[in-house]
Each structure stands twice: as C-alpha cells, then as structure tokens.
C-alpha cells in the first residue's frame, strides 16, 4: 500500500506534464535527435513494419536488442518505458489467461512470446524515432516529404498548448474536488473512491473543451494577423522552413550501421537454430 501511495504521489498532474514535455522536447541533445527526420522516417519504415513479416525468433531477438540499444541512446523518460512495459505485459498476460481459461495449454507461451517480441520491436522503434524528434523537427520532416503545412503547424501548436491544457484540466479537476464530496467510506479495495475519481476525471473534460474553444478564438485571429493562411500557400515559406534540413554524414553512418547489423543477423540466422 505504501508503495502504491508513493507512486500515486509521484504521478501528479505536474509530474505527468513535465514527463510529457521532456519526452517531446527534452531529448534534443542525443545522437539520434540530431539525425535528419527523413533518416528516421526511413529507419522507422523498416523497423516499424518489417517485424510483422519476420518469423525467425533469432532475427526478432536481434532486432529487439538493437532497438533496446537505440532506445537507451534516446534517453527517453522512465515513465514512457514503464507505460510501455505495463501495456505489453497486460496484453500478453491477458491473452495467456484467456487461452488457458478456454482450454489452451502452456504451449501457448512460445507464440505469445513471439508476438510480444514483435510488438516490443515496433514500440521501441517508435519511441526511438518519435521521442527523439522534437515536434518541430517532426513537423519539418513531414513538410519535407510533402505533407501539407497545416499538419505540421497543428503538431507544433498542439504541443505548445499541451502544458496549458494540462494546467487547465488540473484546475477544473481541483474545482470539482474543492466543492464536491468524496465517498464517506472507501469501500472494498477502495472501490468507491476509485469510482469517484474516475468520474471526476471524465467530467473534467467537458469544461476543458469549452474553455479551450474559447481560447482558440483569439488564436485564430492572431494567426490571421501573423499571416498563417498566407504561409501555407507560399512556396518560399516552405523553403525557408526547411533550410535547416540536411542529410549529413551522421545520417549515412546511422543507416549504414543499421543495415550492416540487420545483414549480420539475417546471415547468422541461417547458421543458428533457436
């Protein structure tokens, strides 16, 4: 109980906000963060899709090791990793229990492990690619590969508003608590209290939506005065925005290492059976 309480204390709104922002913006000094977005898109196109078509456990394990390595290099926050592991374990655990319940046997474990491995490779590759790109880099990358400017603006604006959203949500949530009434008794396994908090968490979204809609009005006017619409139509603006994107030595090096590593595990898989 004490451990759960200390965890709950750490998991305050403030904490989640900081973790999220750090995930988005805080990792810009790592080697991977310096890569061109296009390099990461290309890299992710393989690591994010290929695992579905690979059935060799050896190759999957090799890829998993590799993406674990790259994930460590991105210095991603522990909260994200924790959520990922929780998700993976929850998913496989649930499948295992369900299959045992409906007459399966322990033989199910091996195929489940393969599935978990595939999911892990894809998830870690996503973390590597997207957590090390700041929203601006991601937006620039998308713009470069031909996605409309509105999309990349939305991404960076979304992140700009994220802390505001969090604070606003926190305020509204606290407003409910400062005037509401929590259950007198916690109930079995804190049942009543948990239900109370879940209700508040959901209810708080409605006032949030309304207040955000109100804020957006000024934002839209401001965008108009800052030439937002004008920019989407002007190719010179796109050129200016993308002037900093360059595929350099590090990019080639990173891709080369990845390719060499993949070739070597593909070749060794012929000699190893497991």
């Amino acid at each position: 109980m004490a451990a759960a309480k200390s965890f709950a204390d750490k998991l305050s709104f403030e904490q989640i906000k900081i973790e999220l922002l750090n995930t988005a913006y805080g990792n810009d000094r790592t080697l991977i963060a310096k890569l061109d977005p296009r390099t990461l898109f290309l890299w992710y196109a393989f690591f994010g899709i290929a695992p579905w078509f690979i059935h060799s456990r050896f190759i999957l394990a090799g890829m998993l090791l590799f993406v674990i390595g790259t994930t460590i290099m991105t210095k991603v926050s522990r909260l994200i990793i924790f959520i990922l592991i929780l998700g993976l374990l929850g998913e496989s655990g649930y499948l295992l229990i369900a299959s045992l319940f409906f007459g399966g046997n322990l033989g199910i474990i091996i195929p489940l492990l393969v599935l978990t491995m595939k999911l892990s490779v894809i998830s870690l590759a996503s973390i590597t690619a997207f957590c090390s790109m700041s929203p601006e880099r991601l937006g620039e990358g998308l713009l470069r590969i031909g996605v409309p400017g509105q999309v990349s603006f939305s991404i960076s604006y979304g992140y700009r508003m994220l802390p505001t959203l969090f604070e606003e949500y926190n305020h509204i949530f606290m407003s409910y608590r400062l005037r509401g009434k929590s259950p007198e008794k916690h109930g079995l396994f804190y049942f009543r209290t948990v239900i109370y908090f879940i209700k508040l968490a959901v209810k708080s979204f409605y006032p949030l939506l309304l207040s955000m809609a109100k804020r957006a009005r000024t934002t839209v006017e401001a965008l108009e005065t800052k030439g937002g619409q004008y920019a989407f139509r002007n190719p010179a603006v796109k050129k200016l925005k993308l002037a900093n994107l360059r595929i350099g030595k590090t990019d080639y090096f990173f891709l080369l290492i990845s390719v060499l590593y993949l070739i070597s595990i593909f070749i060794s898989s012929h000699y190893v059976s497991f």
Binding site: Y25, P135, E136, S156, Y157, Y159, R160, T164, R215, A216, R217, T218, T219, E221, A222, L223, T225, K226
Partner: peptide
C-alpha cells in the same frame, strides 16, 4: 499594425 490582444497568452502559437 502590431496587435497585442487582451488574452495575449492565446496569441503565442509556437513552443
């Protein structure tokens, strides 16, 4: 014309 709105926080659109 440069314009500073009353709810100026909402006119800041970049991170």
């Amino acid at each position: 014309v440069g314009y500073v709105f009353q709810d100026f926080e909402n006119q800041l659109v970049q991170a």
